[in-house]
């Protein structure tokens, strides 16, 4: 069975380590915050200028001056810091953020990512995504393995305009966890009940599979 969005977020959360500063993109990445493993502490960075993003506020705590990069009202957790946009991107571009999790339309076997623009559709902008992919040491891309029509999103070469080049090293999809290195996708884990054959059929880029591919553990 393909993973749900929540399960994808849950599997991404297993990659978190105690003491990590983490930037979570919009969509599935945002859900990762709900599954931080017990006994570890992570600090969420929101690129509009908040390190230590907390929960959504109670109705009585809602404050127009306290939002995240998705423009949602949030709170700051204990030990948070607030700063300006240049400072925020100094953290990101300077490689100080330990892990970035973001969504994408496509990734390819050379670690390129396309996530911001579909020609012919209205272009809303890249926001902070290009800065995040250029600056983070460690990026996990989370997305469905194939489109609704069954077209692979894990490609030999991205077809859409790029967000960044050679920057993605890990992909977690609804079917599999893959590492990108040496010009190929390396299959590390499969979703429970999903066959290697299905993953092969839905991966257009070069895919390297070991003889035994373990199932993800939840």
């Amino acid at each position: 069975m393909a993973l749900t969005r929540e399960q994808m977020a849950q599997r991404v959360a297993q990659e978190l380590r105690d003491g990590y500063y983490v930037n979570l993109g919009i969509g599935i990445p945002t859900l990762v915050a709900n599954y931080v493993p017990k006994g570890i502490d992570v600090m969420l960075q929101s690129e509009n200028g908040l390190l230590g993003m907390g929960e959504y506020p109670l109705e009585a705590q809602v404050d127009a001056d306290m939002i995240n990069a998705g423009k949602e009202t949030v709170t700051a957790r204990t030990g948070a810091a607030i700063f300006n946009s240049a400072e925020s991107f100094a953290m990101i571009r300077g490689g100080h953020v330990d892990l970035t999790v973001l969504g994408a339309f496509e990734v390819d076997q050379n670690g390129n990512i396309a996530s911001w623009m579909i020609p012919g559709k209205l272009v809303k902008g890249m926001g902070g995504a290009m800065d995040l992919v250029a600056g983070a040491k460690n990026i996990i891309c989370t997305m469905t393995h194939a489109s609704k029509h069954g077209d692979s999103k894990l490609l030999t070469q991205c077809s859409l305009p790029l967000t960044g080049v050679g920057c993605i090293n890990k992909v977690i999809t609804d079917l599999a966890l893959l590492e990108i290195k040496d010009g190929a996708f390396h299959l590390l884990e499969r979703a429970p009940g999903v066959s290697v054959e299905e993953i092969k059929a839905k991966t257009q880029g070069k895919l390297i599979c070991p003889d035994q591919v373990p199932e993800m553990q939840f």
Binding site: P57, L58, V62, A64, D65, G70, E72, T73
Partner: peptide, 11 residues
């Protein structure tokens, strides 16, 4: 000070 996306959690 209009709020673009009012997100809250339950009490």
């Amino acid at each position: 000070k209009r709020i673009e996306k009012r997100t809250v959690r339950g009490a």
